[in-house]
Design a binder for these strands. Structure first.
Lengths: 118, 118
DNA sequence: AGAACATATCGATAAGCGTCGATGTCTTGA
DNA sequence: TCAAGACATCGACGCTTATCGATATGTTCT
């Protein structure tokens, strides 16, 4: 080390690294948030979410949703399940029909998190 | 039609459907936004994005990023490419090193869009 | 020119995901 | 009790994706 200290190259003085100005997202936080984004990251589910939230009262019947897409009924059912499982929509059965309701706090929280990184 | 009008069932009067209170996301808009969300919808890319934005000046060298993960260098390079291709980060080569810069307007716009649906 | 280093690209593999038709479950009205 | 309708679940198919090791590209120092 005493020998090589004579040949200190500029590479070590002009380090490529810059310091952090704030704390980045932790690994556990990232693994908690990513599934929410993944649930939204599909054109059909994005439209489903918007369609539900755009209905009066923030809720919509599955029959309404099925008609809005050129997709089979099982496919829509699958997408609704994905959104429900991550907590973006609530599910309520009323008689023969099933209503899905947008959880606006969840969406707002997610939007705030994404915006924070910017 | 004149005949069946006599047997109007309650089903048609008690419709399951509720009207829209605003215009939902269009198909083309959904297909434009979904790829952005898909790029973010991965724990590693989410942390990469946050890590870059958290560095001083909003930019970070790849060497910094590689060290922050227990993943191979090609894998990190792949994730950076995905974020770059959808326009969430900019790429600039300076000498031997490559710097990625967060495009905060893109992130802010995405956050606003997600929040609008809520 | 050649060595060392930083980063990107390639090819392969395994896992995940969107979609469908067929079928099951539950509710309502006859 | 039975038939019809609304929605969910299942199993299968093809496509996408996350990851890696090996290798290519480009830059700087000797």
């Amino acid at each position: 080390m005493s020998k090589s200290s004579l040949s200190l190259t500029p590479v070590e003085t002009v380090a490529c690294c810059s310091p952090l100005s704030r704390e980045p997202l932790s690994r556990s936080d990232a693994e908690r948030i990513a599934p929410l984004l993944k649930a939204l990251a599909d054109p059909v589910r994005l439209r489903l979410m918007s369609l539900i939230a755009s209905h009066q009262g923030g809720e919509a019947c599955v029959c309404d949703l099925n008609e809005a897409f050129d997709l089979s009924q099982p496919t829509i059912s699958h997408h609704l399940k994905v959104l429900h499982e991550v907590g973006l929509i609530d599910r309520e059965k009323r008689g023969v029909w099933v209503y899905y309701r947008a959880r606006s706090e969840a969406l707002a929280g997610l939007a705030a998190l994404v915006g924070t990184a910017a």
